[in-house]
Design a protein around this nucleic acid. Structure first.
Length: 465
RNA sequence: GUCCCCAUCGUCUAGAGGCCUAGGACACCAGCCUUUCACGUUGGUAACACGGGUUCGAAUCCCGUUGGGGACGCCA
């Protein structure tokens, strides 16, 4: 049943004679916040486009009038920018209704778009009936047998039809950029509804019209769209599109960390939430670009990831989005981050000395604030029963300023000689009194930042607490 | 229910019949460094889902089972 298709050509020629440039699109629907799943698709589109020297189109698929919201559209763009993605062109589908209507007329003229009157309840009943019989729940094309008289009568009664696309009945094959040779048998699918009774177009239709009219060369999306691809290629050809002009790339879906569908975790994995949690965008993009591939993840903003990105390295099986792994990347990123790259997000007054002292102890950049309090603010040390005498001795042994990296060594060395303490017994009470924490940055670096006044005050407080 | 896809360490994966006593990265554990924790560094533990074939030889090929994911919308 496979229909003959010429072998793919290397590049398409356009008027002017040059090889046509790549053009990719990211087409989210503004019905919710962007999450790691569609962020990955957006990133893959962007990376591929930039790698091929092509253009990126941001298309808002807002034909679902029930659920689409302007606030989400704005949030989407903001989140994409946070990720470091940009685009060369953008439009929303609700602005192109006339184009879809024109395309629909062409389809009607060629007999590929036919009116239907069955109600949603009727369709649901038929679907369930077929399911009970163990047959695929596809539409029976009953409306194709409707006479013009029946349609007229319905219209006279105020009932408008909705419109289905008549699938060609072949098997559609394509060479997928990730999955390889794939095929969809059209006879096992329902003729898709393209136009609602109120005249509004549906996704399957608008997407193909737009891909065609905006000159898209590569469609990169999640594997949940493979069946759609069969339908869309059929539609593409019915609208006069050259099937060789469009390449499809389907990325295996992301699973949650337990291996279940990502959908139930979408709230906590929205870009909004991750940003609020203090994740560095470069950790997320670096993770997303490597997840499900044979490449080791390296933190980086999109431009830094372009060269390395390679569809050939993408696996065919679904991958788990592991927050712990993303966090590990975030940590490594922070540990080697230069002061200048984080400067404006650090507490007012923070300098390179402070940053270099604490960065190795951060999981999230926001934690720097806590160490800034330790260095320059107020710390209430916890009570250390039985350590009063030792802490008083420490206070008395505190050397005069100026302090530097060696101050800690000199001070604790003197204390060691005076008290006979060493190791943990020597250091832990001091760390606790000075920072309020039992772990943290090297005190060689931290102590000079705290300074004698604060150190003395904390030791005094800890000794009496 | 029907159809499609997938299956190697905890996680992401290398592996395209002998180069595999299965390699790497992250995580984890340990040693070292540091007179403390962390940082850093070095090393280690850890996997071919199961059952049948094919073959001199299978993680690799075939079939089945199991498990997971997806599709089957007047959603996208």
């Amino acid at each position: 049943m496979a229909r003959p298709r010429p072998a793919p050509r290397r590049g398409r020629r356009r008027r002017g004679g040059g090889v046509s440039a790549m053009k990719l699109r990211f087409a989210p629907s503004p019905t919710g916040l962007l999450h790691v799943g569609n962020a990955r698709v957006a990133l893959a589109n962007w990376l591929l486009a930039r790698k091929g020297g092509g253009a990126v189109l941001l298309r808002l698929d807002d034909t679902d009038t029930e659920r689409s919201r302007a606030e989400y559209a704005a949030a989407l763009e903001e989140d994409l920018r946070w990720l470091g993605l940009d685009w060369d062109e953008s439009f929303r589908q609700s602005d192109r209704l006339a184009r879809y209507a024109a395309a629909a007329e062409r389809l009607k003229a060629s007999g590929r778009l036919y009116p239907c009157l069955e109600s949603e309840e009727e369709l649901r009943f038929k679907r369930e009936q077929r399911l009970r019989q163990g047959r695929p729940p596809i539409y029976d094309r009953a409306a194709l047998k409707m006479t013009p008289e029946q349609l007229e009568r319905a219209r006279a009664n105020g009932k408008e039809p909705y419109w289905r696309f008549k699938l060609s009945g072949t098997s559609i094959e394509w060479e997928d950029g990730v999955l390889g040779r794939r095929a969809v048998k059209l006879p096992s699918l329902s003729d898709p509804v393209l136009i609602r009774a109120d005249g509004s177009p549906l996704y399957t239709f608008t997407s193909v019209v737009d891909d065609l009219e905006s000159g898209i060369t590569h469609v990169v999306r999640g594997e949940d769209h493979v069946t759609n691809t069969g339908v869309q290629i059929d539609l593409w050809e019915a609208l006069g599109g050259d099937p060789e002009a469009l390449r499809f790339v389907h990325l295996p879906l992301l699973l949650d960390s337990d291996g279940g569908p990502l959908s139930k975790r979408l709230g906590s994995l929205s870009l909004r939430q991750l940003r609020r949690d203090g994740i560095e965008p470069a950790a997320l993009t670096g993770y997303l670009a490597a997840l499900g591939t044979s490449h080791d993840p390296v933190p980086g903003m999109p431009p830094e990831l372009v060269e390395r990105f390679d569809l050939g390295a993408v696996s065919h099986s679904p991958a788990r989005f592991d927050v712990q792994q993303m966090l590990a990347l975030n940590r490594h990123l922070l540990h080697t981050a230069e002061f200048e790259s984080v400067r404006e997000r650090l507490p007012e007054g923070a300098d390179p000395a402070f940053w270099n002292a604490v960065r190795g102890n951060l999981d999230l950049l926001g934690e720097a604030k806590q160490w800034w309090e330790v260095a320059r603010g107020t710390v209430v040390p916890p009570a250390q029963p039985g350590e009063g005498e030792f802490l008083r001795a420490a206070l008395d042994a505190l050397p005069p300023e100026p302090w530097d990296k060696e101050t800690w060594t000199g001070w604790t060395g003197a204390l060691k000689g005076a008290t006979g303490r060493k190791g943990k017994a020597l250091f832990l009470p001091l760390r606790l009194a000075l920072t309020g924490e039992d772990h943290g940055p090297d005190l060689h670096d931290l102590l000079p930042l705290i300074g004698r006044d604060r150190a003395a005050q904390r030791l005094r407080m800890a000794a009496t607490g």
